[in-house]
Design a protein around this nucleic acid. Sequence first.
DNA 1: CCACTTGTGTCAAGCCATCGATACAAGTAG
DNA 2: CTACTTGTATCGATGGCTTGACACAAGTGG
Lengths: 126, 126
Amino acid sequence: MGAGVELTVDPDDPTPPYEQLRRQLSDLIGAGRLAENHRLPPVRQLAGDLGLAVGTVARAYRELEQAGQLVSRRGAGTRVAARGPGTRDPLAQLADELVARARALGYDDDQIAGSVQGAVRRRRGD
Amino acid sequence: MGAGVELTVDPDDPTPPYEQLRRQLSDLIGAGRLAENHRLPPVRQLAGDLGLAVGTVARAYRELEQAGQLVSRRGAGTRVAARGPGTRDPLAQLADELVARARALGYDDDQIAGSVQGAVRRRRGD
DNA sequence: CCACTTGTGTCAAGCCATCGATACAAGTAG
DNA sequence: CTACTTGTATCGATGGCTTGACACAAGTGG
């Protein structure tokens, strides 16, 4: 089964589960890892897998629908909405952020670029 | 401008304020933006500035002290703890963070490494 | 010693998120 | 049409977080 994407909830994170879920899905959709019209698991199934109540998952879906990232229809499930024009590659955003912060700490570009090579190598197989 | 660092709390973020504060401070300390022995604002002052109760700020300080990142002493205030021998290079930490987040979004290592090259090029001359 | 600062502890009150269960509404599939 | 799927809504109970106020403990500086 090509499960496709893993969604997780950290019970030790004080952030409410519905919000953890909402953020993950929002990021995944924004990153294009979830294609348009891709179908998400039914609320009952996802709730069961994550050990959450149905209403908790439903809330995450609902908020994402209000944000225009999902479309829910009773009986037909919940699917990824069409992507708007204001979408930017989140990886580029993360990379920009890293460069800005690292420069603020006084590192030069070679060090910065090299650091990520090292991090990838270090965390290979996580 | 001796203000030093900006701490903020977003009321619209469902993450508890004490946790928002804890994370910001933890990140700042880990990244080396708050030097060893740097003194943080008194709980009453920070609580007043952020519109929080004293106990809420105190909780953030307390958890960071338990984590070894801060040292609090009555009457003497709260300061950034000494960085132990196991201290990570701040840049390595930033890089690890980027890799972890990008992988969670489904990017592969080549994309991640390349994104930083692109960001360095893009932001050349900032 | 003294006044002040600062972190810590307690308490009651209220809000919010979660859970578990249940019922209902609306679409799908036969 | 019927059976099933799926999202939505509600209810009470539980627990965590915040607030505001207050008291207390411990260090600082004169």
